[in-house]
Structure formats: C-alpha cells, structure tokens
C-alpha cells in the first residue's frame, strides 16, 4: 500500500512527473467521453449518424479567409515594415474587407481610422511610454 502512495523521482526527471499524470487523466477523460457518446447514441438509435459541420451553413468565405490571410500577413510584415507601416496597411485592408464595398466613403473611413489609430498607438505607447514596439 505504501508503495502505491509513493511517487519517487529523480531531480533530473522531475519535469516529466506532472505532465505524465495530467496526460493520463486526459486520456481517461477522453475514453469516458467516447464511451458516454457511444451509449448515448446507441440509446437514441443513431449510432452511425454523423452530421457534424465545421462551418455554419452559408458562411462568409471571403471575410473568413480574408481575416485569416490578413492576420498572418500582419504578423509577417510587422518586423519587416515596422509597427507603424504594417499596422496602417493591415487596418486599412481589414476594414475595407469588413465594410464590404469599395465606395469612396468606405475607403476614406478605413484610411482615416487606420492612420489615426496606428499613429496614436505608436505615439502614446512607442514614444511617450517608451514601450518597445516591433
């Protein structure tokens, strides 16, 4: 009994102890969930009924993939172009994307917001507070 309640480990191994425990709990929970699901489905008589859809019906492909692409692009350009330039570019494009048209008003609005916000952030945090910006 005493052996069961003792958990011996070497100092150089101590980093693996807790992750192992957590992982076992995780696997146990997963098994429980699967069993639970199977029982539930068996009861309801739809064991093989799979209709899981990742995206909601009729989702906005342009805005979704546009957001993803712009976010990645923003991350990549941050260190290349510096904070100010890449932020203005990113904000301008993503705002146009979200407004969803290329009318004069939309362009002006995006331009104003992106330049103003980026500049204020850059000035207040980068200059006044001396935070290290990308």
């Amino acid at each position: 009994m005493n052996d069961f309640l003792t958990l011996e480990f070497k100092f150089s191994e101590s980093h693996t102890v807790f992750p192992k425990i957590v992982l076992s709990i995780l696997v146990m929970l997963l098994i429980l969930i699967v069993i639970n699901q199977v029982i539930q489905r068996y009861k309801d008589g739809k064991l093989t009924d799979f209709n899981f859809k990742f995206f909601t019906g009729n989702y906005d492909k342009l805005k979704f993939y546009g957001t993803v692409a712009l976010l990645i692009g923003y991350g990549l350009t941050l260190e290349l172009l510096g904070f100010l330039l890449s932020s203005i570019l990113f904000m301008f494009l993503i705002m146009l994307l979200y407004i969803g048209n290329l009318k004069r008003k939309a362009i002006l609005l995006s331009l104003a917001n992106s330049i103003l916000t980026s500049f204020i952030i850059w000035f207040v945090f980068g200059q006044m507070f001396d935070i290290t910006l990308p």
Binding site: I94, N113, I121, L133
Partner: peptide
Amino acid sequence: YTIYPIIIVMCVVGSYAINNG
C-alpha cells in the same frame, strides 16, 4: 468594422509588449 481592427492592433501591441518585446 471600425472597432475590431482597432482591437486586433491593440492585442498585437499588448502581446508584443507584455514580455517587453
């Protein structure tokens, strides 16, 4: 369409700055 881009940029600045760059 106005507030989300601002939030994203703020989040990016905050994340970059939280461990001092």
